[in-house]
Design a protein around this nucleic acid. Structure first.
Lengths: 231, 231
DNA sequence: CCACTAAATGAATGGCATTCATTTATTAGA
DNA sequence: TCTAATAAATGAATGCCATTCATTTAGTGG
């Protein structure tokens, strides 16, 4: 990642109206780091619907086709964003707190980061870690945490994948409307479900948070029993 | 759902080339059931990238704009497909087998159905159940199963949501390439992760299946402890 | 000095969901 | 029974989107 500041970070000399003339500029306007941070800015301002190659180019004060000198597709941009977000996931508790506390901290942080970025989840799920250094770094720290906590080598990946699956699914829940389970006019024909929905209503936590806490505790308990020794 | 057979199910009288003349036909060509089954056929043949309004219209031997007399958007089509798929999820074990066996059967079936339809997961996660009768029916059966197994009313929704989150996340795993965790050239800098990946390699199950089994057992154990009485 | 490569512009391209005016047929109401 | 409203089709736009390509200009290595 070169130290060149991204174009959108310095003030446009003329209000962003004048065009660059064709041909290679003396100093490069674009680089991957700049594209990544512009994409993140766009997403936080307009959401993932607003993240188009055209909008990205405009923010970077560049023609859309110029982006393709640095990334090979929009999927590539999403990949850059995804890997950046992984560096925001808190793994600091591994090695500093007991295994179950560390997992809890990591999982909540991971869920909260991706709850704001659910359109990336399909990307992550299929992304080879080779192409994503930050992602790989996270897995390294977490793997070490599991090994040090006494997990048998051959179960570590499965355990992490199981937790991640739960985390990704739970990230979607956060974005769901609060009344998603309201049976509406069908209430009479679904008495058990309706009663369950009514029964859950009085809780202090948001529904998504209650479910995440419940499931995470169950997973930590169940997976923790695989350990050979305490930490 | 009218009993009118979908157009693509009867042989085209002329090889599918001749066009209908403009104006309302004597008997309706389209209905929601026909659109749903054509969408499913398209998905199974060409995947979700092949599911476009134009392709759907072509399969139904209709102009694309005709679809909008029956659905209000493509999202609406996805919703129809999603609700249909929910009727394929096996809930038959609830009431017929012990709670934990029933949950296991349901969860595997649910995961397997949506592993083939991951693009629908973002749709489901935000879909109000009111608009999806099959989905509602599934929740009703599962809720009753949990209540009868001794679950406290106010925890049932959270428990189901936790399981579903895990199921949706796990459905993505199934679609991931087998070597997604290969650290490649970064292997030296990530010794713990690399060792964990190597250690998991010898398993008989596919990686996604091993993780699903492990996580599901942990969840069933942990959630099962909430029950007041055995079944 | 020259060939090559890198990085920009700007003009296509083709696909996409969706809308609208129009046509025709059925249906409900006076 | 006529008539107005509604339902269901066509076909022609519309605007957005990612992506490609020819072209231009500027550095870089031999």
């Amino acid at each position: 990642m070169p130290a060149v500041p991204a174009a959108h970070q310095r003030p446009a000399p003329d209000g962003g109206v004048r065009r660059r003339r064709a041909g290679r500029p003396s100093s490069a306007v674009l680089d991957k780091a700049g594209i990544t941070s512009a994409a993140l800015e766009l997403v936080s301002r307009k959401g993932y619907d607003g993240l188009t190659m055209a909008a990205l180019a405009k923010l970077l004060e560049v023609a859309p086709s110029a982006l393709y000198n640095h990334v090979s597709s929009k999927q590539d941009v999403l990949l850059l964003v995804e890997d950046h977000l992984m560096s925001l996931v808190d793994v600091s508790s591994f090695g500093a707190a007991p295994w179950d506390d560390a997992v809890r901290t990591w999982a909540w942080s991971y869920r909260n980061v991706f709850a704001e970025h659910t359109p990336l989840i399909p990307v992550i799920a299929v992304l080879p870690v080779t192409d994503a250094p930050q992602t790989l770094a996270m897995y390294e720290t977490v793997s070490k945490g599991f090994l040090d906590a006494g997990f048998p080598q051959e179960r570590i990946i499965s355990a992490i994948v199981a937790l991640e699956s739960f985390i990704f699914g739970s990230a979607y829940d956060v974005t769901a409307p609060e009344d998603i389970f309201d049976p509406g006019t069908m209430a009479e024909s679904t008495p058990y479900f309706t009663a369950a929905v009514r029964g859950a209503a009085g809780t202090a936590l948001r529904a998504a948070d209650a479910a995440f806490m419940l499931g995470l505790d169950a997973l930590i308990d169940g997976l923790g029993s695989l350990r050979r020794e305490a930490d």
